[in-house]
Amino acid sequence: MPFIPVLHAELIKIRTLRSLVGSLAAVVLVTAAFSALASASPDRNDPDPLFSAFFGVSFGQIAAIAFGATAVAAEFRGGALRLTLAATPDRPRWFAAKATAIALPALAVGLLTGAVTLLAGKAVLGAEGPSWAQGLRGAVGCGLQLTLMALFSAGLTAVLRSGVATLSILVPFLLIVSFVIGDMSSGIADFLPDRAGQVVLHSTWDGPLGPWSGLAVCALWTAAALLAGAWTVTRRDA
């Protein structure tokens, strides 16, 4: 069974659910809005020009997580997965198509978010803003980080077979745990998926991870979640 038709079907499914289109729109709006707010009142004590511009990603990623979780969770209601797997019995291939169908729009929207946020940040911050080279790194990193978080959430949803369960784990974790542990800023916390992935949004960093190695760690988390999701989908009765 070829991959492209399955991917096509999964892209149609994403395009035709308003909640998914809405959460993608929210990624751009929330990130840009919170970034603009943060840029307008930058932290004078610890100025990090790049992170001042990309501060909103911490909030925008919640929309990205909602996107990934909702896209997969839609399969776990009302016997939808049975219908999907009756059409595509090759389960690993189906899950790969699902992940790709989540990644493609998430990356496109993520990069758009990066570009909008950078432009807004530079406009508001002016001379205090990041350099273009740094800003470009941040914008690309923003797109990749948001995509990875959407996929991480998608994998976790396949494991838990529920979007509500996934969001009630991830959202408090990102909003609370990561912020609290983040301030202690050392050791294990640096290797959590969102912390590691956000190093790329900073002008300077003092942890063990740099921008690209941080994204690589985030990608490892994501790969682990997706593999666990694929394993669950393949092993369990639909």
Binding site: P5, V6, H8, A9, E10, I12, K13, T16, L17, R18, S19, A74, R77, G78, G79, A80, R82, L83, A86, A87, T88
Partner: peptide, 29 residues
């Protein structure tokens, strides 16, 4: 080769019937 009806609730409530069928049709060309 094989058509099946298992659960009437399998179609997502927020999608139109046409889009539901379009996605399934695409997956099997």
């Amino acid at each position: 080769r094989v058509g099946a009806l298992l659960d009437a609730g399998a179609a997502h409530g927020s999608r139109t019937a046409r889009d539901h069928l379009r996605a399934l049709a695409a997956s099997n060309r």
